[in-house]
């Protein structure tokens, strides 16, 4: 049961990845792409890491460290990129 739940979480994460990455190929603005990308990369990666956590509990310290640093750094990076590109589009 845990294995199936783990694979389900990893599957959801990969679907998020593809959903957030495909707009990168389009012609939309940077901010539009940034929104779908940061949501998909952050949430998708966290779902994948949670799935890995379910599959291999012995490595929980490392995976929780990765989830926390992902949540912090990826969110911060999305904000910094949005700040830098929006002021560039104004000027």
């Amino acid at each position: 049961m845990i294995d199936i739940l783990g694979y389900f979480c990893i599957g959801v994460g990969i679907v998020f990845w593809f959903w957030g990455t495909i707009p990168l190929l389009g012609k939309r603005t940077v901010l539009f792409k940034l929104h779908s990308l940061s949501v998909a990369d952050t949430l998708g990666s966290m779902a994948i890491l949670f799935g890995l956590l379910l599959k291999l509990p012995s490595e929980w310290q490392l995976l929780i460290l990765a989830i926390l640093s992902l949540a912090m750094w990826n969110t911060m990076l999305g904000y910094v990129l949005a700040y830098c590109t929006s002021s560039q589009e104004e000027s």
Binding site: K33, L37, D41, T42, S45, K55, L63, L77, L81
Partner: peptide, 23 residues
């Protein structure tokens, strides 16, 4: 900025792939 966005996504995905290989 489009290039920065794409490479940010590459770096996040690469680190998650490294973690999957480690598991």
């Amino acid at each position: 900025w489009q290039k920065m966005l794409a490479l940010t996504s590459v770096s996040t995905k690469a680190s998650i792939i490294i973690l999957v290989v480690s598991v």
